[in-house]
Design a binder for these strands. Sequence first.
DNA 1: TCATAGAGGTAAGTAACACTTACTCACATT
DNA 2: AATGTGAGTAAGTGTTACTTACCTCTATGA
Lengths: 210, 210
Amino acid sequence: MKYVFTTVIKRQRMKHKGKTNPPGRIKIMKSFSGLMAQKDFHSITTAEIASNARVTEGLIYKYFKDKKDLLYQVLNEHFFEFQAKIENRIANEKTCIEQLEVVIFSSLESYAENRIFSKILLLEVRNSLEFFDSCAYEMVRKYSRTILEIIENGIKTGELKPDVDALTLRKVILGAIEHACLGEIIFGKELDIDDVSSGIANIVFNGAKA
Amino acid sequence: MKYVFTTVIKRQRMKHKGKTNPPGRIKIMKSFSGLMAQKDFHSITTAEIASNARVTEGLIYKYFKDKKDLLYQVLNEHFFEFQAKIENRIANEKTCIEQLEVVIFSSLESYAENRIFSKILLLEVRNSLEFFDSCAYEMVRKYSRTILEIIENGIKTGELKPDVDALTLRKVILGAIEHACLGEIIFGKELDIDDVSSGIANIVFNGAKA
DNA sequence: TCATAGAGGTAAGTAACACTTACTCACATT
DNA sequence: AATGTGAGTAAGTGTTACTTACCTCTATGA
């Protein structure tokens, strides 16, 4: 009989707790980020990543389980800053409406400021179910939960109509944000964050019907 | 000097005008559709598609430029029915609000009824820029244009507020629809179309603010 | 002081995959 | 009867993600 450990027992796993973040690892992530700005994930080869980082291909697999793992970790880094910035801003607002306006504006701003981040999140990671087990997705969920809490609180305090469904409102807000960014990411156009975010807020809060 | 025709002059290109839709081609598309219901695009191999269709791998490349082209053509087929159904329904409604409600409901319905279609459209095609040159994307644009026209008309007739931006309203509607479907596609949950579509319409038309 | 463990990094593979080439067969048209 | 053509096959080939085995430092503790 044959027993196989499918859970990863990588021979050399980095101790990403703390000090040692070897130069090779950093070079690989930087190299990959740079390439992601130019082309899509699948047309970037491991050979390309390595030569661009001036290391050998094998080294990639010392620090990353596979190519996708590299993708997720790069995403995760960007996500971290994003998350921190928004949570801070939200804390500065009092009313539910203002908080949601911050969510809309800051999300658009982050997406616009950080093309690679948004490209990965909106276009690349979704097509593989692995992502939804990754720690990067855990952050998405946390962000998502924060928004839901704001909404539920707004309904409770009477700021929002009692008949709106919190989950649906979140869908509308997040969907609008993502959709607004897509065109800009894909076709590389600039987007007027102030315009778009106040436009979305106007519709979502006041409604479009005359 | 060397001249290369980069525009496709495939040796044998199907005359998709009309009668001959060879059994092999149909088998390949059916096989691929079936596999797409089970796993994601990248983990489906050409060998798998071929053996599942009981043809040889080479035949795939007689009818399709490459694996992605097969993806786009399958998408295109599904899209065609979708488009026709919706345009019909829209024609039966008079007011702008009713028409947009039809758009929301029918989109959700189509996505729910047709998992492969939605999976391809929402998760698989986006990560490659080629898609945005394909004829499948041309249909997306057409659909998108129809919605914009309904909105612009609604603003003109006074059904919608004059201060809403038509493009933004479209973003909100489309974004909400897509976002609503994503979770269901990814995690395979059922979605209550009536609930979700009336919820979205409620927020978009009446606003969430008390 | 010196063996050694282990991290950082390399070089040379390999299996699998998307895609190609060169071919055969059936059959309609002249 | 010759020929052209569409449907389909069989056997490749180059590329790519990933693996294995190895080297080379350096820090530590017996």
